[in-house]
Design a binder for these strands. Structure first.
Lengths: 127, 127
DNA sequence: TTGACACTACGAAGTCTTTCGTATAGCTTG
DNA sequence: CAAGCTATACGAAAGACTTCGTAGTGTCAA
């Protein structure tokens, strides 16, 4: 039996993944420079090592420096995190989560339109 | 300067809060019995003590047993957690979170209708 | 009264997360 | 070549989370 699911990233790991999703393949130095939350160079290195073990990123040893790239996609990760929150805090109801999200921070008009489009796609007959 | 915000509940604390939201004021024994995730009695007691310190719950010493009740509401907690996820994983965009939520686990037709109503309330003119 | 229970308080262990400091080795340029 | 810069690897510390075990105290029935 092999593990089929990659573990949830921790908050710090998510920060690093976010950078990698934006930059694409990058070195420790590049990730370190791009991180909003200031943290030591070796800290970033350590995380990338840990994340490599966890299969959250993959590394290529191009010469002396290593280049890291995300294994998990942003969408997959978002899906997993939303799903987790839905189960843990909303009894599995996406509707309640959606409504909390929208009333917490309303989307822009264009975004609202896009959401509406999505709703229309989900069930044609809504009256 | 006084702390104005109650801290985020940890996963285990959220489980206990969920029970309290459902039961209303309850004793350790009642919470323990109602918890889905099986855990020792003293573990529950310990959490309730910690949560009392954190002001997540309030306790009334009615005789020898203590009765606990939630201080934070379910809605407030949900809002906080959604907001946190939105910031951490969705760059602050509620729209993207909403869309992930709906495509991860579609809502029922009635729920969809309810969401639509909410959308209509948010901006009257959506074309 | 005394033994069996019930309840709270406390301390502590084990794991996970985050953060660095230090060690080591390669490369580069006066 | 030597000094210094750059990279990785490793270990360890500090704090948060979770989970109990044990101790102490009160209550109640036989």
């Amino acid at each position: 039996m092999t593990k089929t699911t990659t573990p949830q990233p921790t908050p710090a790991e998510l920060g690093i993944l976010t950078v990698l999703w934006r930059l694409g393949p990058a070195t420790v130095r590049e990730v370190h420079a791009a991180l909003e939350h200031p943290v030591g160079y070796t800290t970033v290195l350590k995380f990338l090592q840990i994340m490599t073990e966890k299969k959250l990123v993959r590394r290529t040893e191009s010469g002396r420096t290593h280049v890291y790239q995300p294994v998990v996609t942003e969408e997959t990760t978002q899906r997993r995190m939303v799903s987790d929150l839905m189960d843990r805090a909303f009894g599995g109801s996406s509707a309640r989560l959606v409504m909390q999200a929208l009333s917490t921070k309303p989307a822009s008009p264009e975004e609202l339109r896009e959401i509406r489009r999505l709703l229309d796609g989900l069930n044609g007959d809504s009256r």
